[in-house]
Write a protein that binds this DNA or RNA. Structure first.
Ligand SMILES: NC(=O)c1ccc[n+]([C@@H]2O[C@H](COP(=O)([O-])OP(=O)(O)OC[C@H]3O[C@@H](n4cnc5c(N)ncnc54)[C@H](O)[C@@H]3O)[C@@H](O)[C@H]2O)c1
Ligand SMILES: NC(=O)c1ccc[n+]([C@@H]2O[C@H](COP(=O)([O-])OP(=O)(O)OC[C@H]3O[C@@H](n4cnc5c(N)ncnc54)[C@H](O)[C@@H]3O)[C@@H](O)[C@H]2O)c1
Lengths: 213, 213
DNA sequence: CGCAATATGTGAAATCCTTCACGAGTGAGC
DNA sequence: GCTCACTCGTGAAGGATTTCACATATTGCG
């Protein structure tokens, strides 16, 4: 078995759960516990761990501290991860002010916008003109950007980010940006998630098989 | 092949793409076009359609109008979908003001909060006391809620929503709410997505991705 | 100390999902 | 009207992922 994207996603989930468990005073944990918390089967937890050589003890489960340390090493989140927000509108501002990032060692170092009225280089998290973006990205060696600009300009701003050296984009615009040549993109489409929720509800009501035989 | 959740998700994506194509004046479309736009293979597009008896013509592809109509019927989005926002803080407010929902026929009918200073029943989208939530949910027959309250109270507020009759929850709090008995939950964990982005980047860097092509 | 209980680690099996490949219509062009 | 290039629809094949099941190791306990 190899390390696919799905495995990495689950490892991150395990790690987050483990951190909560540690803060509750847990010292050891079983694959069953993690499975319940993350919503997968215990066997899968053990398989995932075995891919990376994470091992427990045959009757004592896994040491929480140990496991977190190893996961941090594997996932590479030892140091603070820095990110910029591009488009400081409604959702961009909410993200800039989100306190939950700190807990995951994520720091928003700056925001960027075209609208002069948004710009404020002296704020705790400065908001700068989008034209300064390439310079800051280079000088600060920023690798990841949160993209929260209007749909109409999202593709072109994404291009600019990549040109400036950004290698990872978390995209909130409702267009499908594609991961390609060295750039990783995660698309978050909230309206789509809501739509799906409505559909799943309707399907749950009516039974999931509406196709013709 | 049966209609799994993944198929429904893709159908919604096809539908969104089709609506954009229609607004561009497209009349017919091929499985290849949809495949490119959604990032899957043409064969899968056709398979997905065949599950629901959606058929095209052997050389003329699919009629855009037709397909949208059928997808709307299948997905059940003929009428406006109504939703409430629970927790009108940073992200809750951003969502309440999001204009993109209208295009997908989603309407936020009210917000709810505990903080008296947030409450404003006369706003275009009224913000009410959380205590009124059960009453409004019942009288307005609301089925779906966006949950944007602090992590610490998210589980208990979710319980209250379900007790009030809510059947679908889009959860932004960084805890894993589980779908169970008649209630569908979609979790959106933005910090987790960012963390994954950083990990994937690091993996890509180090050539450690013993994964898929 | 020795035993029994219990959780891990992992090949094998099962399941699920996607792609392949090709027969079969069909519309466009001549 | 005929042809043929082109796209659909779909069974079969292929891959990927998950679960099963059990040998194995360890620990708590009497
Ligand atoms: N608000 C939400 O809850 C929500 C939900 C889901 C998706 N989205 C998506 O997120 C994006 C932003 O939405 P919003 O509601 O925050 O919109 P918004 O209009 O409030 O904010 C967009 C911001 O981007 C800035 N901007 C425009 N062009 C720019 C450019 N070229 N470079 C830099 N900045 C630029 C604007 O000045 C504005 O401040 C949209 O694509 C939207 O579809 C928003
Ligand atoms: N801000 C972000 O960008 C962001 C990103 C990802 C996830 N989240 C998550 O979304 C949730 C909200 O985050 P936020 O930044 O908007 O926080 P916030 O503090 O700005 O807003 C939370 C709101 O919930 C209200 N509230 C508290 N208890 C309530 C209750 N019992 N019933 C109803 N309302 C109640 C508060 O009064 C407040 O208005 C959190 O769980 C957070 O982890 C936020």
């Amino acid at each position: 078995m190899s390390a696919t994207k799905e495995v990495v996603v689950r490892l991150t989930k395990y790690k987050n759960v483990l951190e909560k468990l540690r803060s509750l005073g847990f010292v050891k944990v079983f694959s069953d516990n993690l499975a319940d918390a993350v919503g997968v089967s215990p066997a899968l937890v053990r398989k995932d761990f075995s891919v990376f050589g994470l091992t427990g003890k045959k009757r004592a489960g896994y040491q929480v501290d140990d496991l977190i340390a190893q996961l941090n090493r594997i996932l590479g989140v030892d140091e603070v991860q820095r990110v910029i927000v591009v488009g400081c509108g409604k959702i961009g501002t909410a993200l800039m002010r989100y306190r939950g990032f700190a807990r995951e060692r994520i720091r928003v170092v700056a925001g960027f916008d075209v609208d002069p009225s948004k710009i404020d280089p002296n704020a705790p998290i400065p908001i700068r003109d989008i034209n300064e973006m390439p310079y800051i990205v280079k000088s600060e060696k920023i690798q990841v950007a949160i993209l929260a600009v209007p749909e109409t300009v999202a593709a072109q701003v994404a291009e600019a980010l990549i040109a400036a050296g950004i290698r990872g984009i978390l995209n909130f615009a409702p267009i499908l940006l594609k991961s390609q040549n060295n750039v990783v993109v995660q698309n978050i489409n909230i309206a789509l998630e809501l739509e799906n929720l409505f559909c799943l509800l309707r399907f749950a009501e009516q039974g999931l098989d509406r196709g013709r035989p």
